[in-house]
């Protein structure tokens, strides 16, 4: 493990983060947007793991678990909202939601 330089791990995490970010930006379906956010959060988790490995401490891993838990909670509320959204707009297209502007 220690043979992999820390920067590689961080770079991978950053790539993952950017993938998620691009997903948020380009996907119109709300479900995919939520999934992309999950990817971004997991990228952060990966970075924590890398950090934890570097310092040889457990708190990085603890953070990952917290992130996972929180993400789950977020998704739960998120999906409920998606349902309501579908009820109003009969679609999952995020761009439909533009009642308010200006």
């Amino acid at each position: 493990m220690a043979t992999i330089p820390i920067h590689y791990g961080l770079l991978l995490a950053a790539l993952l983060f950017v993938v998620g970010l691009v997903g948020v930006l380009v996907r119109r379906n709300i479900l995919f947007i939520l999934m992309s956010i999950e990817i971004m959060l997991n990228a952060a988790g990966l970075a924590f793991v890398v950090g934890g490995a570097r310092w040889g401490r457990a708190d990085g891993q603890v953070m990952v678990i917290i992130i996972l838990t929180v993400a789950a909670a977020e998704v739960a509320v998120g999906l409920a909202l998606v349902l309501r959204f579908h009820g109003w707009f009969k679609s999952l297209d995020a761009d439909r939601a533009s009642e308010m502007r200006g």
Binding site: L10, A13, A44, L46, A47, F48, M63, I67
Partner: peptide, 9 residues
């Protein structure tokens, strides 16, 4: 959280 991870790392 990614920023935190970077700082931590």
């Amino acid at each position: 959280v990614f920023g935190m991870a970077l700082v931590y790392a």
